[in-house]
Design a binder for these strands. Structure first.
Length: 857
RNA sequence: GCGGGCAUGGCGGAAGUGGUAGACGCAUCAGACUUAAAAUCUGAAGUCAGUUCAUGGCGUGCCGGUUCAAGUCCGGCUGCCCGCACCA
C-alpha cells in the first residue's frame, strides 16, 4: 500500500493543475476583503539563489494562509530588470543587455515556478518593458509639474568604475554600493526628486508603521536625521556678503572663536581664484576620500583665508574664516562657527591653530573657578556664562533666547535641518528608463509631450566604448524641440533603477492598463500592501524611496494612501561554511567532503580543504548551493520546509545537507502517515460513538495544535509552527487500534495536519488531501478552526516547589480550591519527605500555575 | 564616536504578561528489522554525584539587586552582530 512518494511527478502535476485552474488569479472585487501579500521583486541576475527561496517561501506561506482564511489575495511577481550588470554582461559576452535580461527572466521564472508559489503570473511586470517604463516617464513628468523634480548642478558622488553618479544612499563607506570603487566628488548637472519636501512627513509617519520592525523605523529615522537649530549670518568684511552658518547650539555663540567653510563652499571657490595655495588646499580636500579609515586617520586641517567675519551679537568682534577639510558642503550650509570649548572637533582644531578657547556653558555642580581650565570640550547642557544677555540661563532656555535675539537682529532664524538629501536619479548609463526631457538651445529644457511617450531605448547600441552608449548613439538623441520645432537633443541620462522599484507594487494592481499608470478602482481596492517581505538590506534605500513615491503619487492624484506597506517583515540571510583549497582558492561546497575527524577533503583532487567561517552565501566566496539542484533532489516542499524549520525567519540560517535531509525525512513521514497508517483510517466523515480517554486526549491535542499553529503563523513564528506540526505527528503515532475511536481521531488528526501544513508544503498536502478524500483543492479549502470544547483542560499539572526548587508535580482538577491544591501538594510523596522536620513559613498557591512552599532555616 | 540588537546543551533553537528551563529538530549513542547496508521504527542523553533505581548538587555570558519564585525585571560589566558616521 505504501507507495513511494514521487516528488517530481506530484509537484509538477499540482503546479500544472493550479495554473490551468487559475487558482491564484486575483480579481478586483470590492465585495470581498482583500489581502495584498508582496515579496520584493528579484533582479534577474541569471539564476535564483537561496535568498530568493527563503524570501519567496515566507511570502508564499503568508499568501496561502491568508487565502485559506478567506481573503481575496493578491500575490504578484515581477522583475527589477534594469541595471548595470546587464550592460557589463553584454559587453563581456557580446550580447545585448535586453537579450541577456530577458533570457535570465525566462530561466528564473521557470525556477520560481518549480517552487510552487501561489503567484498570479498574469500580473507579471518587467521594469525594462516599455509598457512599464512608459508610465514611469509619465509619473516623472507629473512629478515635474507638481514641483517635485528639478535639475541642478551639484556636487555628485561619481563612481569611476561604473562611470555614473550615485545617490547618497548608494555610497557605502565612501564606496559605490555595486562597484566598490572609491567615490569621487564631481560638479555635474543632475536630475533630482524632491524627497526632502517630505522629510518631516516621512519622519513623523514612522511611528504609525507599527507592523514594521522597530529596527527599520530607527534606521529611517536616523537617515532622515532631524536636528533643530538656527541659521546665523556672519557679515564678511570686505566681501560685501554674509556667511550663513547652521548650528544646533546658538547658545554657545559667545564661545565662538572662528568660522570654517567647506572647500566646495562658493566663498572658498571665489577666494581660491586669487589664492593659489588655497586652491591647492581645496583640491586636496576633494581628493580625500570619505571612507571610514580615511576619515579617522585624516587630520583636521584648516587654511586661514585671512578674511574676517563679524559676530552677529557684537559688530566689533571679528572672527577668522578658515577653509577646513572636515566641513561638508552637503550638510547644513557648508559653513560652521567653531566653539572649541563645547565641541570636540572644534577643540582639537583650536588647539592646532592656537585659537582662543572660551568656555560659556557651566555643567551643573561644577565650580566656575576650577572649570575654566579645560582639558577637553564639554558638550553637555549647563548654565550659560561669559555670554552677556544669556548669562545664568539653562541651555534649553539659552538656545531659545539666542534664536530670538538672532531673529530680532535680522541675523538669521531658528530652523530645522535634515540629513536627508534630495534624491539624485540621473545615471549616465544605457540600460535604464530614459528621462523624458529634451534640451533645446532656444527653449531650454523641455518635457517630452505625453503623446510621445514612451521614450524608448534604441536597440542598436555600441556598448564596447566606455561612457554612456546613449550619448554615443549617432541618431537617437537628435530630435526636434516639441515647443519651437528646432533642433534639440534628448536627455541621455537614464533613471536610477531604484525609481523603477519605487512603484512596481502599484503597477501590479493594474498591470495591463496601457493608457495610465494605474486604475483608480484597482489601486483603491488593493493598496496598501498588507504584508511586504524582503531583505533588511533595503531598510533605507528602497523602502524610503517607495514611501516617498507613494506620497508623490498621492499628490499627483493617482493614489489615496500615504504609506505603501502596512506590514513589513525583513528576513535573515542564508549562510554556509566557506572552503578554500591549499592554494587559498575558494571551493564550492559540492566539491568538499567533510571527514569524521572534522577535517575536509576536496572531492575532485583528494587534497585537504581549509574550512572557513560560516558566511552569507555569495558567488565570490563560492559558498553557494544552487536551489534548482536541491529542488530536483528533494522537491520544492522539502526546500521550503527547510527554510521554515529551526530558525526564526528574521534570523540568519545556515544551510546544511543534514538540515535538508531532516526536512525531507519529515515530508516522507507525512506521506507514510497518511498512505500507510498504522491503524486503518475511519471512512471520511465517520463519527465515533464513544471515545477512549486516549483518543479523546489526542483529539484535544489536535485542536490545541490548530490553535497554537495558527497563532504562530500570525506572528511569523514559522519555526515554532513546524515544531507543533511535528509534535502532532508524534502524538498521532501513539494511537492504537484497541483504543475506541482511534481510527476516527487519527483521520481527524491527519486531515488537520495536512490542512495546517498546506501553506508550507503545498504540493504534498494537496496530494494527501486528495488521498484523504478531499472534494475541493486544498488551495481552495478554508483554514481549520479549533473547537473550543476541546481546548478546555479539566485537569491541570502543577509544579510544587520548596523554597523555589522543584520537588514534584501534582495533578488537580481545573478550578480546584486553593486548600485542596495545597493539601495535594503536601501529600506529594517527595514533597512530604523533604518537608519532614521542617517548619513551614508560608505556602503560595498560584492557581493553575504553581505551589511554592517556603520553609525556614 | 552615536544609535540598535543579541548571548540558553555538541549544534539550530523552544519557553505570551516572572511560575516545572532545554519543546521540536540536527548530530551522537544503543536496540529492533535485515545475510548486510540504506531506509524505517523504539529508546537514551544539560552537567556532576549516586553501581542501578529513588534522589540530590550545579546550571540560560559575568558581577550584584528586587521577589515566595528570575532565561525573563533592575543596576553594573564582558563579548559578538547590525546600522550610521568629520552631521556642526
Amino acid at each position: 500500500m505504501a507507495e513511494r512518494y514521487n516528488v517530481a511527478a506530484t509537484e509538477s502535476k499540482w503546479q500544472k493543475i493550479w495554473e490551468e485552474n487559475h487558482c491564484f488569479r486575483a480579481v478586483t472585487d470590492p465585495a470581498r476583503p482583500k489581502y495584498y501579500a508582496l515579496s520584493m521583486l528579484p533582479y534577474p541576475s541569471g539564476r535564483i539563489h537561496m535568498g530568493h527561496v527563503r524570501n519567496y517561501t515566507l511570502g508564499d506561506v503568508v499568501a496561502r494562509y491568508q487565502r485559506a482564511k478567506g481573503f481575496n489575495v493578491l500575490h504578484p511577481m515581477g522583475w527589477d530588470a534594469f541595471g548595470l550588470p546587464a550592460e557589463n554582461a553584454a559587453r563581456d559576452s557580446h550580447t545585448h543587455p535586453a537579450a541577456w535580461t530577458y533570457n535570465n527572466i525566462k530561466v528564473m521564472k521557470r525556477e520560481l515556478q518549480s517552487m510552487g508559489l501561489s503567484l498570479d503570473w498574469e500580473r507579471e511586470v518587467a521594469t525594462c518593458d516599455p509598457a512599464y517604463y512608459k508610465h514611469q516617464q509619465k509619473l516623472f513628468l507629473d512629478f515635474l509639474k507638481a514641483g517635485l523634480v528639478y535639475r541642478n548642478e551639484a556636487w555628485a558622488n561619481w563612481d569611476p568604475v561604473d562611470h555614473t553618479v550615485l545617490a547618497n544612499e548608494q555610497v557605502i563607506d565612501g564606496r559605490g554600493w555595486r562597484s566598490g570603487a572609491l567615490v569621487e566628488k564631481r560638479l555635474l548637472a543632475q536630475w533630482f526628486l524632491k524627497i526632502t519636501a517630505y522629510s518631516e512627513d516621512l519622519l513623523s509617519a514612522l511611528p504609525s508603521l507599527d507592523q514594521w520592525p522597530e529596527k527599520v523605523r530607527l534606521m529611517q529615522e536616523n537617515w532622515i536625521g532631524k536636528s533643530e537649530g538656527a541659521y546665523v549670518h556672519f557679515a564678511v568684511e570686505g566681501q560685501g556678503e554674509s556667511l550663513e552658518v547652521f548650528t544646533t547650539r546658538p547658545d554657545t555663540l559667545f564661545g565662538a572663536s572662528f568660522l570654517a567653510i567647506s572647500a566646495n563652499h562658493p566663498l572658498a571657490q571665489k577666494l581660491a581664484k586669487k589664492d593659489e595655495r588655497l586652491a591647492a588646499f581645496c583640491e586636496d580636500c576633494n581628493r580625500m576620500g570619505t571612507s571610514l579609515v580615511e576619515v579617522e586617520k585624516a587630520e583636521k586641517l584648516g587654511y586661514d583665508t585671512g578674511v574676517k567675519a563679524v559676530h552677529p551679537f557684537d559688530p566689533s568682534w571679528a572672527l577668522p574664516v578658515f577653509v577646513a577639510n572636515f566641513v561638508l558642503i552637503e550638510y547644513g550650509t557648508g559653513a560652521i562657527f567653531g566653539c572649541p570649548a563645547h565641541d570636540e572637533r572644534d577643540f582639537a582644531f583650536a588647539q592646532k591653530y592656537k585659537l582662543p578657547i572660551t568656555p560659556v556653558v557651566l555643567p551643573s555642580g561644577e565650580d566656575l573657578a576650577t572649570f575654566k581650565t579645560m582639558l577637553e570640550a564639554y558638550t553637555g547642557p549647563g548654565t550659560a556664562f561669559n555670554s552677556r544677555f544669556l548669562d545664568g540661563m539653562e541651555t534649553e532656555q539659552a538656545i531659545g533666547a539666542a534664536i530670538a535675539k538672532i531673529e530680532s537682529l535680522g541675523a538669521g532664524k531658528g530652523t530645522v535641518q535634515y540629513r536627508l538629501r534630495d534624491w539624485c536619479i540621473s545615471r549616465q548609463r544605457y540600460w535604464g528608463c530614459p528621462i523624458p526631457m529634451i534640451k533645446c538651445p532656444q527653449c531650454g529644457i523641455v518635457p517630452v509631450p505625453d503623446r510621445d511617450l514612451p521614450v524608448v531605448l534604441p536597440e542598436d547600441i555600441d556598448i564596447s566604448k566606455p561612457g554612456n552608449p546613449l550619448d554615443h548613439h549617432p541618431t537617437w538623441k537628435h530630435v526636434s524641440c516639441p515647443q519651437c520645432g528646432g533642433k534639440a537633443e534628448r536627455e541621455t541620462d537614464t533613471c536610477d533603477t531604484f525609481v523603477d522599484s519605487s512603484w512596481y507594487f502599484v503597477r501590479y494592481c493594474s498591470p495591463h492598463n496601457t493608457e495610465l499608470p494605474v486604475d483608480k478602482k484597482d489601486v483603491d481596492y488593493w493598496l496598501p500592501v498588507d504584508q511586504y517581505v524582503g531583505g533588511v538590506e533595503h531598510a533605507i534605500l528602497h523602502l524610503l524611496y517607495a514611501r516617498f513615491f507613494t506620497r508623490a503619487m498621492k499628490l499627483t492624484g493617482y493614489l489615496k494612501i500615504d504609506e505603501p506597506f502596512t506590514g513589513l517583515f525583513t528576513q535573515g540571510m542564508v549562510c554556509h561554511e566557506s572552503y578554500k583549497d591549499d592554494q587559498g582558492k575558494w571551493l564550492y561546497p559540492e566539491d568538499v567532503q567533510k571527514n569524521p575527524d572534522g577535517t575536509a577533503t576536496q572531492i575532485s583532487t583528494g587534497r585537504p580543504v581549509q574550512v572557513g567561517r560560516i558566511e552569507v552565501m555569495s558567488k565570490s566566496k563560492k559558498n553557494v548551493v544552487d536551489p534548482s539542484s536541491i529542488i530536483q533532489a528533494y522537491g520544492a516542499d522539502t526546500a521550503r520546509l527547510f527554510m521554515l524549520s529551526d530558525s526564526p525567519p528574521e534570523r540568519d540560517i545556515e544551510w546544511s545537507t543534514a538540515g535538508v535531509e531532516g526536512a525531507w525525512r519529515y515530508v516522507s513521514r507525512l506521506w507514510r502517515q497518511v498512505t500507510a497508517p498504522k491503524i486503518p483510517l475511519a471512512p471520511k466523515g465517520a463519527r465515533a460513538d464513544a471515545l477512549s480517554p486516549e483518543a479523546l486526549a489526542v483529539r484535544q491535542e489536535i485542536h490545541r495544535t490548530i490553535e497554537s499553529f495558527t497563532q504562530d503563523l500570525e506572528r511569523f513564528h514559522f519555526n515554532r509552527a513546524v515544531a507543533r506540526a511535528r509534535e502532532l505527528s508524534n502524538t498521532l503515532d501513539t494511537l492504537e487500534a484497541s483504543q475506541a475511536g482511534a481510527d476516527v481521531v487519527l483521520r481527524e488528526g491527519l486531515e488537520v495536519l495536512v490542512r495546517l501544513l498546506n501553506p508550507m508544503l503545498p504540493h504534498i498536502t494537496e496530494e494527501l488531501w486528495q488521498i484523504l478524500g478531499g472534494q475541493t483543492f486544498l488551495t481552495n479549502t478554508d483554514w481549520p478552526a479549533a473547537d473550543p470544547i476541546y481546548l478546555v483542560r479539566n485537569t491541570i499539572t502543577l509544579a510544587v516547589q520548596i523554597n523555589g526548587k522543584l520537588r514534584g508535580t501534582i495533578v488537580v482538577e481545573k478550578g480546584a480550591a486553593s486548600q485542596l491544591v495545597e493539601q495535594a501538594a503536601m501529600d506529594e510523596p517527595n514533597v512530604k519527605r523533604t518537608l519532614e522536620g521542617k517548619e513551614i513559613a508560608r505556602v503560595i498557591v498560584v492557581p493553575e500555575k504553581i505551589v511554592n512552599i517556603v520553609v525556614r532555616g
